[in-house]
Amino acid sequence: MIATLSACATGPNANPRDPLEPMNREIHRINEDLDTGIIKPVAQLYADYVPSPVRTAVGNVFSNFSDMYSAVNNLLQAKPGRAAEDTMRVAINSVFGLGGLIDIATPAGLPKYKEDFGQTLGYWGLPSGPYMVLPLLGPSTVRDTAGMLVDLQLEPLAYMDSTALQYSLAGLFVIDKRSRLLGTTSLLEAAALDKYSFLRDSYLQRREYLVYDGNPPLPPAPSDSTSDPAPAAPADGTDVQSK
């Protein structure tokens, strides 16, 4: 099975957007082993034993942070209206939602956008580049990886004095996010014949969808140049098929 997939990765059936597929598959395998052995069991314990209101509050705090990134990137994409709505979300949830523990902005009708610097680069026309699988972090592209490095500069954890607190909150973020995907991954494992290809194609399609705010350009229409031309009618008007 592995030999077959490796051959497809480098042969005529290779995906042009994934020239690093053999290496990506190996990193994907290592990530899967780490997830199966450590991250998923811990996330399951978190979901089973931490009360739902507490998990909701934790997710709301991290979501409030993401609204900050979104506001900056919407502004960089020349979308001042969206940037203002993101800023209002952060202000309302931070002040009236006890530092973001309670999401008040969503019931109030403020939409939530998910913008990052990778999307900003795509918005201004930078191609995504080859698909990549990052250790621990999973699916990405060259463009999105560069964007992530910029987004990290806006991460509040980067400016905390306590290294132990930084790692603790980063670990909590990973476990909380993984716990929200438990049902999705179980369905994926049951349905996907080739999980790697499914995740790659889903990731690339979703990123394109996000870059274009839900309206990606249509693919070019297939060329009809290979089809046989219709036989020309004789000048005398005789039916070609009757001959």
Rank of each mutant, 00 (worst) to 15 (best):
S186I: 13
K243L: 15
T145S: 15
D35Q: 09
L204A: 02
A164W: 02
L165Q: 10
P216C: 02
S227Y: 12
V50G: 01
G99K: 07
L187I: 10
G37K: 10
T185E: 13
G147T: 00
T145G: 10
P53L: 02
A71K: 01
V142H: 07
L134Y: 00
C8A: 14
G97T: 07
A91F: 10
T87R: 05
H28C: 04
L137D: 06
I38R: 02
I2P: 01
P229G: 13
N13T: 14
N24G: 00
P219F: 07
L126M: 13
M1D: 11
G118Y: 04
A47G: 05
R206E: 11
T145W: 09
K79W: 03
D103K: 14
V50P: 04
R17K: 14
P231S: 07
L75I: 02
P127V: 02
P80E: 03
M23Y: 14
P135A: 09
S186V: 13
P130L: 01
S227R: 15
S242I: 09
N60R: 03
L165R: 11
I27R: 06
R17W: 07
R200Q: 13
A83Y: 00
D103P: 09
V142C: 03
D86A: 07
M160E: 10
P80V: 08
S162T: 06
L45M: 09
V174P: 02
A84P: 00
I38V: 15
P234S: 12
G214V: 05
A78K: 08
V61W: 04
P16K: 07
N73L: 00
P111G: 02
L76C: 09
G109I: 09
L126A: 13
A164T: 12
N24R: 05
S225Q: 12
L20P: 06
I39S: 00
Y131F: 15
S227D: 15
D103S: 13
T145P: 08
V240S: 11
P219T: 08
D194Y: 07
S168P: 00
G125R: 11
D161E: 12
T120W: 04
P216W: 05
M148H: 10
F65R: 11
N13A: 14
G59A: 15
I175G: 01
A146K: 07
P16S: 06
V90R: 02
S223A: 13
P19I: 11
I102M: 11
Y123Q: 09
L172H: 00
G97V: 05
S179D: 00
T141H: 04
G138C: 06
L193Y: 10
T238R: 12
I2M: 11
P229I: 13
L210V: 09
E189Q: 15
Q119H: 14
L154N: 04
P135F: 10
A105V: 03
P51E: 05
D48C: 01
